[in-house]
Design a protein around this nucleic acid. Structure first.
Length: 218
DNA sequence: ATGACGATTTACT
DNA sequence: GTAAATCGTCATA
């Protein structure tokens, strides 16, 4: 498949987060092992104006420095004393926007290696979370700042023939962000069984209560 | 130097 | 549903 070019990343995080659903993340380990998965969940972090962003207010530190790098760079950070999360830097160099990769559907040929890296058997639990997918693809400190456009250890490819559907939801784990916590800046494929958690406010199967309900709208 | 916290995951009640 | 795990990072001093 074809690698996503630099131009693909030259847009706002909200656009890229949507566009990345259904694309493929590929990792080549040092021993040559190739791992891949289809992206089924993302979150947009809009940079200096976004209270939930590591770059809110123009904050620039050793940790978030890569958010200011050119589009198509990986921003990998360490959190909770034990986990890594991976972002795709976008927009333009100096504008610290990024898209957090939250879940993948592992592809055939990758699963056994991922099981070994994760230490779990369940396929569903391999890549269904931002830290899980990093562990499953051996993404860590060494991948912070890698060039996803030209590099050979980590990159993105155009996705499947049939486009994926995606729905929007609130971002996870950012309740401290005030009004920004309510914005629908998370995208996920509602049909995938590999997301970190389903979209809120929508039941795939309406619950039966036995009571009649008032109905709004149609 | 110190204290508080986190874009999470896991196990447990 | 709640809580523990576990420590680098950041703001304050």
């Amino acid at each position: 498949m074809s690698r996503l070019p630099k131009k693909f990343f030259a847009r706002d995080a909200s656009e890229l987060a949507s566009a990345l659903i259904g694309t493929r993340l590929v990792r080549r380990l040092e021993d040559g092992t190739k791992l891949s998965g289809i992206i089924v969940e993302t979150e947009a972090y809009l940079g200096v104006r976004d209270r939930a962003s590591h770059a809110f207010g123009g904050r620039r530190t050793d940790r978030n420095e890569m958010m200011y790098a050119r589009e198509g760079t990986a921003y990998v950070y360490f959190t909770y004393g034990m986990h890594y999360c991976m972002n795709v830097v976008c927009a333009a160099e100096g504008d610290p926007q990024a898209v957090l990769l939250r879940a993948l559907e592992p592809e055939e040929g990758s699963i056994e290696t991922m099981r070994a890296l994760r230490g779990v058997e369940s396929e569903r639990l391999l890549c269904s979370g931002p830290a899980r997918l990093c562990e499953a693809m051996e993404i860590g400190r060494g991948q912070n700042g890698v060039d996803l456009v030209e590099g050979s250890e980590l990159w993105l490819e155009s996705g499947e023939k049939v486009p994926r559907r995606s729905v929007r939801a609130k971002r996870v784990g950012i309740d401290y962000a005030g009004g920004w916590a309510k914005r629908l800046l998370r995208w996920l494929d509602p049909a995938s069984g590999h997301v970190s958690r389903p979209a809120q406010g929508k039941r795939s199967v309406p619950r039966t209560t036995g009571k009649a309900k008032n109905r709004k709208g149609t």
